[in-house]
Write a protein that binds this DNA or RNA. Sequence first.
DNA 1: CAGTGGTCTAGACCACACT
DNA 2: GTGTGGTCTAGACCACTGC
Lengths: 260, 260
Amino acid sequence: MTSQVFSVDAPGLPDLPAAAPAFSPLYQQIKGLILQSLQTGEWKPGEGIPSEMDLAARYRVSQGTVRKAIDELANDNLLIRRQGKGTFVATHAEQQVQYRFLKLLPDEGDPKSEGPAQRKIIDCKRLRANADIGRALALRTGDAVLQVRRVLSFAGAPTILEDLWLPGNPFKGLTAERLSDYDGPMYALFETEFGVRMVRAEERIKAVVPDAAQCKLLEIKSHTPLLSVERIAYTYNDTPMELRRGFYVTDTHHYHNALN
Amino acid sequence: MTSQVFSVDAPGLPDLPAAAPAFSPLYQQIKGLILQSLQTGEWKPGEGIPSEMDLAARYRVSQGTVRKAIDELANDNLLIRRQGKGTFVATHAEQQVQYRFLKLLPDEGDPKSEGPAQRKIIDCKRLRANADIGRALALRTGDAVLQVRRVLSFAGAPTILEDLWLPGNPFKGLTAERLSDYDGPMYALFETEFGVRMVRAEERIKAVVPDAAQCKLLEIKSHTPLLSVERIAYTYNDTPMELRRGFYVTDTHHYHNALN
DNA sequence: CAGTGGTCTAGACCACACT
DNA sequence: GTGTGGTCTAGACCACTGC
């Protein structure tokens, strides 16, 4: 099979001096096309995508090329392969990878034995983005944003205080009630209710002293230091969709990170 | 090619009821063999390993199978592929990935513009492992360990205080002078001088209040909270080889983490 | 059983580095 | 040019799932 989705080097044009070669392997182009179908919602979270054979026929490449594209997407947690069943669009709702982005673990004991956190929405309101929040979410200052504050408790002990900001437009209709009623990861709700899938995130961690309001909500003394975890979460295309500032009490828990 | 390195299912034995199938693909077996050659030092850090063709001949499998094994090892940062040149054993001494395990970055500006940290060895002595340290390093309580304390400064400001413990045996002959004189990542010194290559690590992060000694060494007020970063670093075979407790000042720096 | 992903092979050609 | 890793193909067979 010699056909290609895009021609790699523009034929007919003489080689320009400044032009970078920009060689892109076929499987990368296929990866891009699959990514597009994910973005546009042709295949929705949890659904299966066509078989490798079907995709190979669709893009007119060999199965091996499709396979390599899917391999990379599965590695990025955008797709999940299930032998004998097919390839599926990844979801935040799956048992195995629930709370993929939450790295706080109990110092001892199995995280599962601790059970799910109790969640309490403290506040949920609409407001206008200030400069900081606008920058983080790639909005203009003054654009509508949704602000949520909540507390997570483990075994009755308040452990995480989170403030989060969402762009107002994609999350029209999100209310405190909606958040409270939903049983499962917040990012799973975002997927099913608003079609926003968080794909990756970056966190900046510092040690800070709590203010009075934080002390009260977390039921700690003012000299107890907190882990400040500032997260920006992105959808497809590196579009920021959430700014989250978490404050973690780390006397019986720790932030876990694996380095490779 | 139908030959295999190991037979997958023991022939001649009737299928036992409790036996798990334990099917292992060929390329995984090849991966194991390459790993063995890395452990035994047949190929040393920085050196090139045989070409894919040579390895295919050696293990009597196809090049594609060797390729898949190497792909995974390269993904784990154990090998580095260089097109046109060959495949090399990864090192901590390379420009691109220096300080692979140090996730502290300046809040603003390019980390490179900050330049390398100034390092100062505070202390370096031999002692016997207590229970905690013995457990972390898989030693017996009372075994010889080396303890090092040092401070790293950025732009003259002390920012990181580290205590680290190493098993005495593999690191015989390591002295404060040796550490001070060496110009480069500590893990690079461990490779070249002691043949110990750190392959992965795990970190537990908490927010803590500093004690008096820490305040003095880091030149901070006693109410400044610190990020406590406890790391266990592993060589091949998941053998723990270093326990490190870092205390980071996070007023102008932050711990950065990417979530996928 | 058919259909899916997973493994393995063999061969062709491309991109890159060195000499 | 030669040798390396990188891409692409085509076909065979294996392992797993569900009908």
